[in-house]
């Protein structure tokens, strides 16, 4: 823990600590796991046999890294400003996202809309299904056993830990991505945003508001 020296209570050693007071992180000198060895072997074989190239592998990693919640936020802001688009999004979220130029691939996307009396939140209890094409890589907690097992049983307690306390009059709908669909929450447009442009609205849309563990920001 970083700390100020004037409030030291007990004598202790800083040996092995970085100048900022944190322990140095150990180098990863441990042996590769079985699956790491298998991944490297498979990748090297595919490259040796000319099936793919290192450049292609790296390009695909770049594609995955380039996806971010900004993609999803643009879709949400469009739905807030264009009622016809909102309707198309709720009918077929994959096609509506493609219409905006996002690479959805074969992904089957369903948008679920928050209303005055309904709040939606997504989870994958069996693994870690996530709308990566629109939101990028999932946060670590989304893949944790705690989130996956607790959200379907005590969503109100879990959302409370995210700082989201919903009234009893709001129905919570948890969406468990058990098979071929992926989900994105269409949050309610915040009040007091009538004068904002689509781009300004998109900046209010957080990653968590599209998972359902949060709400959009309100304008400052």
């Amino acid at each position: 823990m970083p700390h100020d020296h004037h409030d030291h209570g007990t004598p202790h050693s800083h040996e092995g600590m970085s100048p900022s007071g944190h322990p140095y992180r150990a180098d990863n000198d441990t042996a590769l796991t079985y699956w790491q060895v298998m991944e490297i072997a498979m990748r090297e074989l595919l490259i040796e046999k000319g099936v793919t190239t290192s450049a292609e592998v790296q390009a695909q990693i770049d594609v995955m890294d380039s996806r971010s919640p900004a993609n999803g936020a643009a879709v949400i802001a469009r739905a807030w400003t264009d009622p016809d688009f909102r309707q198309r999004l709720l009918e077929n979220a994959s096609d509506a996202s493609r219409e905006m130029g996002f690479d959805i691939g074969p992904l089957q996307l369903i948008a679920v809309e928050n209303t005055a009396d309904t709040h939606n939140v997504i989870v994958c209890t069996l693994c870690s299904c996530y709308p990566r094409n629109l939101l990028g890589l999932p946060p670590d907690w989304y893949k944790s056993r705690a989130y996956r097992s607790r959200l379907v049983k005590t969503p109100r307690a879990v959302l409370g830990e995210f700082g989201l306390n919903l009234p009893d009059s709001t129905t919570i709908r948890v969406h468990d991505s058990t098979a071929d669909m992926r989900y994105i929450v269409l949050p309610a447009r915040p009040a007091g945003t009538d004068d904002l442009t689509e781009e300004q609205l998109a900046r209010l849309v957080t990653r968590d508001s599209m998972i359902g563990t949060g709400l959009p920001r309100t304008p400052e």
Binding site: V152, K153, T154, P155, R156, A157, D168, T171, I172, R173, V174, H175, D176, S177, T178, A179, D180, M181
Partner: peptide
Amino acid sequence: PLYRVRFTMGEIWGDAAERPEDTVDAEIY
């Protein structure tokens, strides 16, 4: 055929449900 099936928390968890009218939707073959 794949279906989205809606369950109430009351049906799944009985008396342990936080609010029985809340729901879980899941895809079931």
